[in-house]
């Protein structure tokens, strides 16, 4: 069953085409990494899919529904969660509250202008579990903006995971993390992918992370999709090696 269907997605700034005519299908539960050199258009592609950026051309369908023109909040309400390459957390709120907001993002509770304390505490307990799994439990009460850089990156991932999305979009989640933090994040992502039905779109520079997580790889180069297939096949592909992977094969 196809969850995400992108057709002819393009984005230009003036004459510069950051993303050109990209088709991308993603099945339920599928995990796909998008790789490519800096400036290839990966972030731009994700921003169009998640509704953060207007498309110059192309369509996006989610679960058969045309969501091309929908803004980010509408997509989030349909079960799309994302992390940003440039950390986007709420700096003046505690770490645990950042995650609780993720846990209860789609709970009708969010419209209550009074009370709700007990339900919020339930959400907070759930948020603590996520923090614990990322090794952040000890930092739960600290303001997110005062956490170390690596911890903020972990929090960014935790908020998106806490939304329990149908489609999880991660833009360079481990960027700026230490080796240990990267290991923890990869471990948690594997667990979550195994235990939930979430489909994942992942941009990642660390190819070890890519091969550890994604059975399928899409390669972008100058805004165009130049390869798409099983990780091993893409790894062996001549054009990909020329464009990006260098000596890795």
């Amino acid at each position: 069953m196809t969850l995400l269907q992108c057709r002819g997605l393009s984005r230009a700034w003036g004459a510069f085409r950051a993303v050109s005519d990209v088709d991308l299908d993603l099945a339920e539960r599928e995990i796909c990494a998008v790789i490519g050199p800096n400036g290839a258009g990966k972030t731009t592609l994700f921003a169009m899919i998640a509704g953060n950026l207007r498309k110059s051309a192309g369509t996006v369908r989610l679960d058969g529904e045309d969501v091309t023109g929908l803004p980010a909040p509408a997509l989030a309400r349909r079960g799309v969660a994302r992390s940003f390459q440039i950390t986007a957390i709420c700096p003046g709120l505690s770490a645990v509250e950042n995650v609780r907001l993720g846990v209860q993002a789609r709970d009708p509770l969010r419209w209550r202008p009074f009370g709700g304390a007990a339900r919020m505490r339930t959400g907070e307990a759930r948020a603590m579990e996520w923090l614990d799994r990322l090794g952040l439990a000890g930092r739960a009460k600290e303001l997110a903006g005062e956490l170390a850089h690596g911890d903020q990156r972990l929090l960014e991932v935790a908020v998106a995971l806490a939304q329990e999305p149908r489609l999880l979009i991660l833009d360079e989640p481990t960027q700026g993390m230490s080796l240990e933090e990267t290991r923890r994040t990869v471990e948690l992502l594997r667990q979550v992918m195994a235990e939930s039905a979430t489909a994942v779109l992942l941009v990642e520079h660390d190819l070890e992370v890519v091969f550890a997580l994604a059975p399928r790889i899409v390669v972008l180069h100058r805004g165009r999709k130049i390869a798409d297939g099983p990780a091993e096949a893409v790894r062996a592909d001549e054009a990909v090696q020329q464009a990006y992977l260098g000596g890795l094969g």
């Binding site: 994302r82 709420c90 907001l101 969010r110 419209w111």
Partner: peptide
């Protein structure tokens, strides 16, 4: 709960939208 969402919008509009 709604007041906390207001705080989230204040703190980071992009994050609030993603939620």
């Amino acid at each position: 709960p709604l007041g906390r969402v207001v705080a989230a919008v204040r703190e980071n509009e992009q994050r609030a939208e993603a939620l």
